[in-house]
Amino acid sequence: MTTRVPVAEGVFTWPSDQPRLIGSERDGVISFPAEPGAPQRLLGTRGTLWSFTNQQFRPPSPPYDGNDTAETFVPYALGYVELPGELLVQARLTEPDPAKLRIGQPMELVVVPYTVRDDGTEVLTYAFAPADDTTGDGSND
């Protein structure tokens, strides 16, 4: 069985069938990631795409720790998703092709592996998937 671990504790609820991003709220200001010492607040899982771009080259490593190389790197998209009444969250997007993304489209939170360690452990991060063509939480592929 593949071992899966979150990239860090305290970013999203895990393990969970319906993971949520862990933000915080203090004096009416909502933050993500959670502000140290502030009361935590789980964020909504659905929103709309505010803007996006893609990452066509392997990010400098470190700090990027994907187990790929400049040759095997698979481009991904990222952007900001507007969570109604909360904030804009920056995230990877599961759809890598900018031509298939549009501002305002519904998106929902998923948790996905972004790299595999030498011992086979999959490392998980959060991402947003187009809400129209996604079922489940995306972590059971």
Binding site: A8, P59, P63, L78, Y114
Partner: peptide, 15 residues
Amino acid sequence: LPSWYGQTGMFLTTH
């Protein structure tokens, strides 16, 4: 910023 922001490939200025 937290380390995971860089590990997951989001800590860049270009994007």
